[in-house]
C-alpha cells in the first residue's frame, strides 16, 4: 500500500498535475509519524502509511493550495474535513486531489503504555490490531486496545470527494457505539456538567493548540484575538477560558467532523471531543444532517427552512 501511495504521488508530481503532495513520513521516533510535504518525485519516497499516521492533514490545505494544486492523503474521517473546506469556500474542489488511504484504525498512544518507548522499532497493522516490533521482539496489540476511540466506532466509507482510492477499504465492524463516550456524560445533570466543565476549563492555558490543529478553525483573526472588541479576556481567567471554549464550540456546530485533533493536541488533557460530539448530535437531530457529507450542501446556519421549523416563534 505504501508503495502504491508513493507511486501515485510520484506520478502526480512528475506529470506536474500537482505542485505538492501532503502525506506522512517517519517522525523522530518510531511511534510517531509526522506530516510530509513532498514537492518533488524524490520527496515522495519518504511517504509512509502506518498506524501512527494520526494527523488530520486537511488542516494544511487552505494555505497549501495558494501555491498551486495539492494532493493530500486522507483517511475517510479526514476526507470529511476536505468536504467542509470546499463547502466553506476555503479551497476549490479543483485545487485538491484526495488520495484516500484504507484505514483500519490509527494508534491510540495508551496502547504503548507498558512498552519502553526507546525500544520501539516499528509499528504496523496486523490481524485486526497492530504489531509493535521492539528490541526484545514483537508484541501484538488487539484492536480494542490499539486504536483511538473514534476508530472503534467508525462506520465511514469513502468521502464524497474521493479522487484516488488506494487499496481496498477495510470492512467496518464497529466495536463501540459512536455515542458511547457521550452517553456517560449525558447522564449528568446540568449542574453536574457545569461543575465538570468548570474543572476542565480551569486547566486551559490558552495555548490555542486546539484551534491550530482544527481544520475548521481557519479564520484569519480569531474572535478571541480581536483588539478593540474584546469578547473574552486573553488571560487564563477561568470564565474567559470557559467563554473561549463555548464560543469555539458554537462556531463549530454543524461543521465539526469529529477528527479529534483538538483533544489530541491539548497538552492539558481537556476532553474537547466531548463538546464536539454532543453538539454534532444535537445538530443531526435538529437539522437531519451532519458535517462533511455533501460539498454542495448549505451550511446549517444558512439552510434554515421556516416550513420545517419544529418550534416556530409565536406570531
Amino acid at each position: 500500500m505504501e508503495n502504491e501511495l508513493r507511486q501515485k504521488a510520484k506520478e502526480l508530481l512528475e506529470s506536474g498535475q500537482v505542485k505538492q503532495v501532503i502525506g506522512y513520513e517517519d517522525g523522530s521516533t518510531a511511534f510517531k509519524s509526522t506530516p510530509c510535504f513532498a514537492s518533488s518525485p524524490e520527496d515522495a519516497d519518504r511517504l509512509v502509511w502506518n498506524p501512527t499516521c494520526v494527523n488530520n492533514l486537511a488542516v494544511y490545505l487552505p494555505s497549501a493550495v495558494k501555491q498551486g494544486k495539492v494532493a493530500v492523503a486522507v483517511k475517510p474521517c479526514d476526507g470529511r474535513s476536505v468536504v467542509e473546506l470546499i463547502k466553506e469556500h476555503q479551497i476549490n474542489r479543483d485545487d485538491v486531489v484526495t488520495m484516500v488511504v484504507p484505514c483500519p484504525g490509527v494508534l491510540n498512544p495508551d496502547a504503548l503504555a507498558d512498552i519502553d518507548p526507546k525500544t520501539i522499532k516499528n509499528i504496523e497493522w496486523k490481524g485486526d490490531g497492530i504489531s509493535v516490533t521492539t528490541d526484545s521482539g514483537e508484541i501484538s496489540i488487539p484492536r480494542e486496545k490499539a486504536f483511538l476511540d473514534k476508530c472503534l466506532s467508525c462506520t465511514l466509507t469513502d468521502p464524497a470527494v474521493t479522487n484516488i482510492k488506494l487499496g481496498d477499504s477495510p470492512e467496518r465492524s464497529p466495536l463501540k457505539d459512536k455515542d458511547a463516550a457521550i452517553a456517560e456524560y449525558e447522564k449528568m445533570s446540568v449542574d453536574e456538567r457545569r461543575v465538570f466543565w468548570a474543572k476542565e476549563f480551569t486547566k486551559c492555558i490558552r495555548c490555542y493548540a486546539c484551534r491550530q490543529a482544527c481544520p475548521a478553525c481557519y479564520c484569519k483573526e480569531c474572535f478571541v484575538d480581536k483588539n478593540g472588541q474584546v469578547w473574552a479576556l486573553k488571560s487564563t481567567d477561568p470564565e474567559a477560558n470557559w467563554f473561549f471554549h463555548m464560543t469555539r464550540a458554537m462556531h463549530l456546530a454543524g461543521r465539526c467532523i469529529g477528527c479529534g485533533e483538538c483533544e489530541r493536541s491539548c497538552p492539558m488533557g481537556i476532553p474537547l471531543t466531548l463538546i464536539g460530539r454532543t453538539l454534532e448530535k444535537d445538530v443531526e437531530e435538529m437539522f437531519g444532517s451532519g458535517a462533511g457529507q455533501d460539498p454542495d450542501a448549505l451550511p446549517i446556519l444558512g439552510s434554515f427552512d421556516l416550513t420545517k421549523d419544529p418550534d416556530p416563534c409565536p406570531e
Binding site: 466553506e88 469556500h89 476555503q90 479564520c219 484569519k220 483573526e221 451550511p299 446556519l301 444558512g302
Partner: peptide
C-alpha cells in the same frame, strides 16, 4: 476586508 476569510456564511444567511 483584512480579516474576512470568504467563508460566505454571511452570504448564505
Amino acid at each position: 476586508e483584512d480579516t474576512c476569510v470568504d467563508c460566505q456564511l454571511c452570504k448564505e444567511v
